[in-house]
Amino acid sequence: MDLITPEIGLFFWQTIVFLVLIILMAKFAWKPILGAVKTREDSINDALASAENAKKEMQNLKADNEKLLQEARIERDALLREAREIKDKMIADAGAEAQEKANHIVAQAQTTIQNEKNAAMADIKNQVASLSIEIAEKVVREELSNKDKQRKLVEVMLDDVTLN
């Protein structure tokens, strides 16, 4: 027998064994192997889809974060602007109030000064009047102490009365 020469019987039995092996493999091995491959393929596809969804969600979250950050910046700027306006208004109000108080104090001081001036002038007038009366009394006493001087004074006064 020659090992290299094919014989029909051997070929026939090898073909039958090969077909039986393929049928057994198809019935028992291919379905579980294909099922496992299909399951693995589905899980890989699900993982890829999940990764794509996660990527899209991250992009959406990033866009939302940018939007929120921009809104926060706008709100911060508005709050700062409002705070500056309130500060400026408070400073202006305080300045106006201080000016008003200063004007009031100055007006009170001027009134007080005027009142004190008037009181001082009245006091001076009273003192001048008292002093004048005292001087006049002394002059008149001296004038009236002498009889000749009294007559002369009466004559001068009568001359003044007739002249007026």
Rank of each mutant, 00 (worst) to 15 (best):
M1E: 03
M1H: 09
L3I: 01
T5M: 11
T5N: 12
E7K: 15
G9V: 03
F12D: 05
I22A: 14
M25A: 15
K27T: 15
A29R: 11
A29Y: 14
P32K: 14
P32L: 14
I33P: 09
K38A: 06
T39S: 08
S43G: 04
D46P: 02
L48M: 02
L48P: 00
L48Q: 05
S50R: 01
S50A: 04
A51E: 12
E52I: 00
N53M: 02
N53P: 00
K55R: 15
M58E: 13
Q59K: 14
N60V: 02
N60E: 09
K62R: 08
I74N: 07
E75N: 10
R76A: 14
I86F: 06
K87R: 04
I91P: 00
A96V: 08
A98K: 14
A98F: 03
K101L: 14
H104Q: 14
I105D: 10
Q108C: 05
Q108K: 11
T111D: 15
I113W: 15
E116Q: 15
N118V: 11
A119S: 07
M121H: 09
A122T: 12
K125E: 13
N126S: 12
I133Q: 08
I133W: 01
E134Q: 08
E134F: 03
K138L: 01
V139I: 05
R141H: 10
R141F: 13
E142D: 09
K149H: 02
K149R: 07
E155G: 02
E155W: 01
E155T: 07
V156G: 04
M157Y: 01
M157K: 01
D159M: 05
N164H: 11
N164F: 11
